[in-house]
Design a binder for these strands. Structure first.
Lengths: 222, 222
DNA sequence: TAGCACAACTCCTCAGACAAGTAGAGAAGC
DNA sequence: GCTTCTCTACTTGTCTGAGGAGTTGTGCTA
């Protein structure tokens, strides 16, 4: 009857669970029965059901919390962010960057560790050195901005920054090429000012300087 | 070093493996060392390394073939925002919301059209009415916030807001349920204040009020 | 009534054993 | 020389039993 059943039990169990979740047996955010209940229910061992749960956790359908249980976090399937960015106006992207970096800058002023500070200063120094090559300069600038976002210790903001980087990198290179000049002393001074504000834990000043800097960037766009 | 280790070993192992894969230690399509090699290498038991592999298999990074081994099928999973959000601390999500909504609020004050204004006021009225049901109240509140973001006329910010909505909706419902009360007059007044600031094109005030409002929200989280 | 200790429940990790599948080396046959 | 078969070492798959660790609700105490 079952001519070939190459599929491992754990995979089958994962499929079976996903089917029951899709079927509405357990709603979003609700708790599944325990491993010790589920395993005999599906006729498999405990480690097998655990691997099935891990698989679905990897897909983002379930999360496990030690001591509490296993919970449903999604019924399925994400969507496409790359397209949105590609279509979007570069000005809109910069505005989003402003939103993120200004807030990150303020948070960095509150949360930065000595290690963060060292990393930021190293990045600033690197940016100072890379003033000849155009692309290298943009990348060094991006790295400095990223080090600030990292100091905010918020993974969401970091991820957002990284999402926007490729799109704004291209725009900045084009802009600097048009301008015919890059790596001015004024720019470098602005960055130093932001770092100083973060170092002295002045969130308001850090935010204001970051906003000013990015608004100036936006103003130079086509 | 790592003082906190709330993260289960299996998750850490998965992360470590992913890091090494990203680092190019094993190329696409290549075979990883066996479980019995990997486990002592990372200092964990075999079942733990198996769960880590299952997790990455669920994310589409690895595939296993009984008798043959474990193979790399992708160097990086596609940037899946839903997953990032699901894993993230709710406080981090609210901080990202602050970044986006504060900026959107300021932009809305500059760009809102009469039609935007009407939509926002309608949403505020709707929120005022939906004070009985808990979930309806949260949804009406979200709709009001969204109408403000829409008035900023920036598709990226709108998309970001929508991305964060499901995750924060769940958290807000839980929070209000715990608090046992919702839809206070104070909250309603705050929203009216933000709308007034936007109506009178006061970007600074709109931003400040929005920040204040969301910070209060963040403070009430578990 | 408010605070606290505790017990029951949950997931987490390990170790050991055996089953099932794969791939390569080497023997056997043509 | 080439194909085919078999055997073997190695790999993942599965189960079980034992503790460890975190969470949650209950009931007792003050």
């Amino acid at each position: 009857m079952t001519q070939l059943r190459r599929e491992p039990l754990a995979e089958q169990a994962a499929e079976a669970l996903l089917e029951r979740i899709r079927g509405g047996e357990w709603a979003l955010g609700q708790k599944l029965p325990g491993e010790t209940t589920l395993a005999p229910q599906l006729g498999v061992g405990r480690s097998t059901i655990r691997e099935a749960i891990r698989h679905l956790a990897g897909r983002g359908v379930l999360v496990t919390r030690q001591g509490a249980g296993v919970f449903v976090t999604a019924l399925d399937e994400p969507e496409d962010w790359d397209q949105v960015l590609r279509r979007a106006d570069i000005a809109a992207v910069i505005e989003a960057r402003i939103a993120i970096e200004v807030e990150a800058s303020a948070l960095a002023a509150e949360r930065r560790t000595p290690a963060d500070l060292r990393a930021m200063r190293r990045a600033a120094q690197e940016r100072e050195l890379k003033r000849s090559g155009l692309e290298e300069h943009v990348d060094a600038d991006t790295a400095l901005h990223r080090s600030i976002v990292l100091a905010a210790h918020n993974p969401i903001l970091t991820e957002l920054f990284d999402t926007f980087t490729p799109r704004s990198r291209q725009a900045m290179i084009e802009m600097l090429r048009r301008r015919g000049e890059h790596g001015s002393d004024a720019d470098q001074l602005t960055h130093v000012g932001i770092l100083e504000a973060i170092a002295s834990r002045d969130a308001v000043l850090a935010a204001a300087l970051t906003r000013e800097h990015l608004l100036a960037l936006k103003a130079e766009l086509p």
